[in-house]
Amino acid sequence: MTIQSVAAPPYKIPKRRGAVLQFIVTQPLGAAGLAVIVAMIFSAAFADALAPFDPLDVDFSAMLGPPSWEHWLGTDSFGRDVLSRIMYGARTALAVGFLSSIFGCTAGALIGVVSAYFGGKIDLAIQGVVDVLLSFPIIVLALVVVALLPKVVVAGIDVALIGAIAIPMAPRVARVARASALAIRELPYVDAARAAGFSHMRIIFRHITPNIVAPYLIMLTASVAQAILLEASLTFLGLGVTEPTPAWGLMLSGTAADFYREAPWMILFPGIAISLAVFAFNLFGDSLRDWLDPKIQV
């Protein structure tokens, strides 16, 4: 009995009716984060209809204009509408954030599960590489990858950028996934599957992977927050998204740096957008963890 409870998977997705409603009631902060995320996705998806101006529309008669009825959040040094650029920038941030997190977390989770499942020398070798990669701050590793990969732009988004954000994430997720999978590997039904002669692939994908979905989702949410921040940082450094694609990091770099003393709204609002987005995903991620695993009291 004690072995059973020790080896029990650390997380379970609640299968209750009205799960969403219950999340909102028990995790008001997380619900607030979720609301911000939904609003962001909404404004990014319908930016074409919602944004008051074209984000690329240069208007030299309205350069560096302060917030007004026409331009709610003012205009930048090219007379472009800041609000519209933030809404289209949300598209870039969310696209890069989600894509890189999904790639990074999925790769990391698979590596972690494989490492835990096979154990022994394979585990040792994989964990060695993971350990080495973990000795770098995310942005340092991302910068190295940016330096290595040639730029390939698809639909206005640099594939190399997504790789640069996804790769540093993978070892971090692999750690957590490995720990969860180690506990599941010891459960009787995995033994049963092995005894029944199922292939390694089938056991990994049908029996172990579904049971680490909860920690995976938690990591994914936290990763999106980090990815948005990292994308903004890399773009700010001139190594991420480039003009003319609207991006929040871009709104804080280049000409913004020269003019923000005369036109503080140029940097104020994009910075708030980044902070709010990261804040919302972090808040939601934290609450998701508390909700999925009430045992952890943080």
Binding site: A225, L229, A232, S233, F236, L252, A257, Y260, R261, P264, I267, L268, G271, I274, S275, L276, A277, V278, F279, N282, L283, D286
Partner: peptide, 20 residues
């Protein structure tokens, strides 16, 4: 939590702006 969300380069810009 805000400290984890605010980009350090933006915070730096705000500091410079406030000083100015």
């Amino acid at each position: 939590i805000a400290g984890l969300a605010v980009p350090s380069f933006w915070l730096g810009m705000l500091f410079i702006l406030a000083l100015l």
